[in-house]
Design a protein around this nucleic acid. Structure first.
Length: 313
DNA sequence: TTCCGCACCTGCCGGC
DNA sequence: TGCCGGCAGGTGCGGA
């Protein structure tokens, strides 16, 4: 399940392997995967065919590749971007000349043919089993604060669909004080606030549980009772756990998350509570508890993270 | 305006 | 063996 560290691993791979490539063809095998692109597959292909991929940028779990339009010089400032969200199972796979020929995949949704990639790659494939991910070409708009739109480019611009997403914890322009204030203004549960991408982006179910465990806070703690130091503690914990995951190439439970070369990360071995129902808490050895939460699961240590009496979610 | 619940989607797994 | 329901979960939308 791609979260920030996994998406950053993919972004880094794209940055090294396909930036400066020109798109020489587009194949859409599953129209649903470009459902957010206004105009459908024909316009999607038309806008990309001949375009140059100029960078690989990420904010939270959103990725985008600013493009110089077909026919334009590669030095032109990009006005549009190929936006990608991996959803739950999306993969962006870079295929080299040796394997590009007949390689296929049962969940291959979109294929970009490339010319002039620094790696010699000929295909950028969007593979997505559960089809929650999507691709789209969107116009770029200026950032309100004039800071770079995301990690990977100095361009102070973001795609339209990313404009409402908050900056992530690893972004140099992340404003911790403003995010703490935003969390404490809310009247909801702490985990729900952490998962709200408009408050802080990049935190998903796995890292929310891990950050809450590290900060010794329960997911149902009302945000309006949170002390400033507690809010900072959980944000710091989330940043730490994501940095550690990033070093190990992200978290992986199965083949659904891989980097651009199709390789899995190793951070799942470092998880303290997520997916460990009934197993001992690494701190106090109390069995980890699993609760249903927002149509998914939350994992906590009942001793390290006691449930508040005024629980809210 | 803010918060919450649900739909979207596919494959795997367990139960019958 | 085959069918069915439950589960996984990020995002956006509609309703309260």
């Amino acid at each position: 399940m791609p979260e920030l560290p996994e998406v950053e691993t993919v972004r880094d791979g794209l940055d090294r392997l396909v930036v400066d490539a020109r798109v020489s063809g587009v194949e859409v095998f599953r129209e649903y995967s470009i459902r957010r692109h206004a105009g459908g597959p024909a316009l999607f292909a038309e806008q990309l065919d001949g375009a140059v991929l100029t960078a690989a940028v990420r904010r939270g779990k959103f990725l985008w590749l600013p493009i110089v339009a077909p026919g334009g010089p590669a030095s032109l400032t990009p006005s549009h971007a190929l936006v990608a969200h991996l959803g739950m199972s999306g993969q962006l796979l870079v295929r080299d000349p040796g394997e590009a020929g007949d390689w296929t995949h049962p969940h291959l949704r979109v294929r970009l043919h490339l010319d002039g990639a620094p790696s010699g790659a000929r295909h950028l494939d969007f593979v997505d089993q559960r089809t929650f991910g999507h691709l789209a070409v969107e116009s770029l708009g200026p950032t309100p604060d004039g800071a770079p739109g995301g990690h990977g480019s100095d361009l102070a611009a973001v795609p339209a669909s990313v404009a409402h997403i908050g900056r992530d914890l690893l972004d140099p322009a992340f404003d911790a004080d403003a995010v703490v204030a935003a969390i404490r203004r809310r009247r909801t549960g702490l985990k729900r606030a952490l998962l709200d991408q408009t408050v802080v982006s990049g935190v998903g179910n796995i890292y929310a549980d891990e950050a809450l465990w590290r900060a010794r806070l329960h997911y149902a703690r009302p945000t309006d009772t949170l002390r400033r130091a507690e809010a900072l503690r959980v944000l710091d914990a989330a940043a730490d756990v994501m940095r550690e995951a990033l070093v190990q190439g992200g978290t992986s439970f199965d083949s659904l998350y891989v980097n651009v070369n199709g390789e899995s990360g190793y951070f799942s071995r470092g998880l303290a509570v997520y997916g460990r129902e009934g197993q001992p808490c690494p701190r106090c050895e109390t069995p980890v508890r699993r609760d249903a939460f927002m149509n998914r699961s939350s994992y906590t240590c009942p001793r390290c993270q006691p449930r508040p009496r005024n629980a809210r979610w």
